[in-house]
C-alpha cells in the first residue's frame, strides 16, 4: 500500500514521498527528509569545542569548556525539538476533513485538523520565498459567512518544500478524493 518515491526539494536535496491508501476515500501522504546526519552533528560539535578550546588556551578559564558543552547540548536539544522536522503528513479523509501534522526529530508532533466544510479547495500556488519564486501546495479555506470568498490559506509541507513534480502527484491524488465528496 505504501510506496516510497524519491523526489527533491527546492534546494535539490533528496526527500521521500510515501503515499498510503487506507481506503478509497482516505489517503495519507508523508514527506520525509533524511534524518539528522551524524556528520553535521560532528562538524558543529567539533567546531564549537575547538573554538572553546582555543579560548580556554588563551584565557585558561575552565568555565569556557563547560560552557561549550552546555551550549552544544542545549543547542542540539532545541534544534531537535523545535527546528528539525522529520516528516510531514497530510491525511485526507473524504467528507470528514484534512489533517496536517508535522513531527519533529525529537518526536514532538503538532497537528491541525481542518473540517471538510471549511475547505474550499486544495491547489498548487506560487509564491516568493527567500529571494526565489517557488510552487507550494495549499488548502484554501472558506469564509464562514460567504462560501465563495476565501478567508485564508494553509500552506502544506512547509518545511520540506518539495518540487513541482512531487506536488503535482499529491495534488492529483487529493483532487480525486475531493471530487468524490
Amino acid at each position: 500500500m505504501s510506496d516510497d518515491e524519491e523526489f527533491t526539494d527546492i534546494n535539490g536535496k533528496v526527500i521521500f514521498l510515501a503515499c498510503q491508501n487506507h481506503s478509497s476515500f482516505c489517503r495519507e501522504f508523508t514527506v520525509s527528509v533524511p534524518k539528522v546526519s551524524l556528520r553535521h552533528v560532528m562538524v558543529y560539535t567539533c567546531s564549537v569545542w575547538l573554538v572553546a578550546y582555543v579560548v580556554f588556551f588563551l584565557t585558561e578559564n575552565t568555565a569556557v569548556l563547560s560552557g561549550a558543552i552546555f551550549v552544544t547540548l542545549v543547542g542540539m536539544l532545541l534544534h531537535v525539538h523545535f527546528v528539525k522536522i522529520d516528516h510531514e503528513t497530510l491525511l485526507i479523509i473524504g467528507s470528514l476533513g484534512v489533517q496536517v501534522s508535522s513531527s519533529y526529530a525529537s518526536g514532538r508532533e503538532s497537528t491541525t485538523f481542518i473540517e471538510m466544510s471549511k475547505i474550499k479547495d486544495i491547489v498548487i500556488n506560487e509564491s516568493i520565498y527567500m529571494q526565489r519564486v517557488i510552487y507550494y501546495l495549499c488548502i484554501l479555506l472558506k469564509e464562514p459567512t460567504d462560501p465563495d470568498a476565501l478567508s485564508s490559506v494553509v500552506p502544506l509541507f512547509q518545511s520540506s518544500k518539495p518540487r513541482l513534480n512531487c506536488l503535482v502527484k499529491v495534488y492529483k491524488s487529493c483532487q480525486e478524493i475531493l471530487a468524490q465528496c
Binding site: 498510503q20 487506507h22 481506503s23 482516505c26 491525511l91 479523509i93 501534522s101 491541525t112 485538523f113
Partner: peptide
C-alpha cells in the same frame, strides 16, 4: 481541535 489516527489499514 481534534486529531485522527487511522486504526485499520485494510482496503475495502
Amino acid at each position: 481541535g481534534v486529531k485522527f489516527r487511522v486504526l485499520c489499514e485494510e482496503p475495502g
